[in-house]
Nucleic acid binder design. Sequence first.
DNA 1: CTAACCAGTGAGAACTTATGCATTCTTTGA
DNA 2: TCAAAGAATGCATAAGTTCTCACTGGTTAG
Lengths: 151, 151
Amino acid sequence: MTKNERQRIIQEVIATHLVGSQEELRQLLGERGLDVTQSTLSRDMRDLRIARIPTPTGVRYTIADATSEGEGRPTLAAILPQLFARLDTVGELIVVKTVVAGAQPIAEAIDSEGNPDVLGTIAGENTILIICRSESARDRTAKRLLSIARK
Amino acid sequence: MTKNERQRIIQEVIATHLVGSQEELRQLLGERGLDVTQSTLSRDMRDLRIARIPTPTGVRYTIADATSEGEGRPTLAAILPQLFARLDTVGELIVVKTVVAGAQPIAEAIDSEGNPDVLGTIAGENTILIICRSESARDRTAKRLLSIARK
DNA sequence: CTAACCAGTGAGAACTTATGCATTCTTTGA
DNA sequence: TCAAAGAATGCATAAGTTCTCACTGGTTAG
């Protein structure tokens, strides 16, 4: 379990659960087999710029919007490590999950590479569908994306 | 000086300064002739939903914008029956047609389930593409969606 | 007029988050 | 393979935030 993996899981958990404290997050991660201290979570949440919003019913965490991060058309290597969440494949398709608002910029960066293995991309809010020319093209592309994302 | 006036000034100060703590905010308000305790500021900031964002150089406060307002997301069961129109499948894909503007909320609800059968979803205006891990995963998922939609 | 209520507040206790330091794990270069 | 440097982490605790309680001033019902 690397730091990056952990931070991605944290983003996912934050996005799908109403977490009220770092200690609570620690327990949720524990249920997933991830055992870390609150100190580490504090540092992770700083790295990930996870915002803490007070509400009448308690606090809540949320991923700081990705759109406020970048400008221009950055390269894949520049943004993928920050915005990437996870990746799955099936048939000639690759499904990339990203942090909120991360899908559009990544898809644009992929498109602008002009890679012939990639027929096209469709980006939603936090999901990109990449349609590849063949299953082997899909393998090559997925492998490449993963290696970039892990930087 | 009413509570409302004070809160309005707090918003202004937050918007125009990099405030690093409630104590610091207290001093900034002091310079403006506003004398309150940090306790009160804590309550004001809860009322105003002012988010606290950790950064490498310290924390920073910001008015929570509409995008991060999403309170408890509705469950699939709560919205699918109202918004669902029909459903078709092909290969590992499910195509769900919804009433106009129904696609986005349903896709979010599906995503937030964290179902491993579902690699991801992409939502348009009234169509959702669901990419599943396999054809059998697609069968399971389609069946489940149908049964929820018919409630 | 008086009692009951209520929003707003300060003081400090309770809780949550951040940090300094020591230790362990990883990577790099000889 | 080994030593040195750097990254990552836990522990203890400091720093920061929220909550509880008590009190005040203002408003309302009798």
